[in-house]
């Protein structure tokens, strides 16, 4: 293709203007060709980079979804223990993360932790960390029963069992606030080990009335 020459004759004597003039009065179409091909190459590079970025983001989103699923299953196990009456066996659960550890997609470090308010599953690889949080439906304490009873003994001089309820002058709000403070600390769990989920009852006696408080205990 040849673009028609523009009318008129131009004479320029300044040698510094030669390049610009060549560019302006090029009638061969080469500049046009080079510019369009360069633009095409740049656009192709941008599209390829965007595709690569999109693919990487989708992989991260997929991992995040899997972490959410792991956290959801762990949360469901704790909540199902909370829902069950203390007397039946479903209130005592042994939970394993085993099916997820060593999974090919999670080659990096995966951690699980639990507090009185939520469960957290986190995963770190290279320079990026993913987290999945799930709030718990029932009041939970990340301690075993002995530790809980010892804490109550130290604070209220009573273990809170049915044979040794917490008595006056300790009031119900005082006990619940103390137990809530025990659950604020986040406890890390070993994902290759067994997690025990049980239910504990704490009794508070106020004159003739005895109150029963239910808590889910999560420990290893």
């Amino acid at each position: 293709m040849r673009i028609k020459e523009k009318a008129g004759v131009h004479t320029h004597n300044d040698p510094s203007d030669n390049g610009r003039l060549h560019f302006s009065y090029d009638t061969g179409g080469w500049i046009d060709l080079i510019l369009s091909k360069t633009a095409l190459m740049i656009a192709s590079i941008i599209i390829l980079a965007a595709l690569y970025h999109l693919s990487a983001e989708l992989q991260h989103a997929d991992k995040q979804r899997q972490l959410d699923t792991i956290a959801q299953e762990f949360r469901s196990a704790i909540d199902s223990a909370g829902q069950s009456p203390c007397s039946i066996s479903s209130a005592n659960i042994s939970y394993f993360f085993g099916t997820y550890t060593g999974n090919g997609q999670f080659a990096g470090q995966m951690n699980a932790s639990v507090s009185g308010e939520y469960v957290k599953i986190s995963y770190e690889e290279q320079d990026r960390a993913l987290h999945a949080f799930k709030p718990l439906a029932y009041r939970t304490i990340p301690l075993n029963e002995n530790m809980l009873r010892n804490e109550l003994l130290d604070r209220f001089s009573a273990s809170g069992e049915v044979s040794d309820p917490i008595r006056q002058p300790f009031t119900y709000p005082c006990v619940t606030d103390f137990i809530r403070s025990l659950g604020t600390k986040e406890i890390d769990l070993n994902m290759s080990g067994k997690v025990h989920i049980t239910k504990a009852l704490i009794y508070i006696q106020n004159e003739s009335e005895v109150r029963e408080l239910e808590y889910v205990l999560v420990y290893q």
């Binding site: 293709m1 179409g29 046009d32 060709l33 369009s36 091909k37 633009a39 095409l40 656009a43 192709s44 599209i47 965007a50 595709l51 999109l54 989708l58 989103a61």
Partner: peptide, 30 residues
Amino acid sequence: AFMEPHNDIISTALVVIGFVVFAAIVSEAY
């Protein structure tokens, strides 16, 4: 051949628009 030198640009623009639509659909689905 008025359009001929710009075919590349037009096709690139179509690819970019197609990619943007694809990315929007994928993110919306997610």
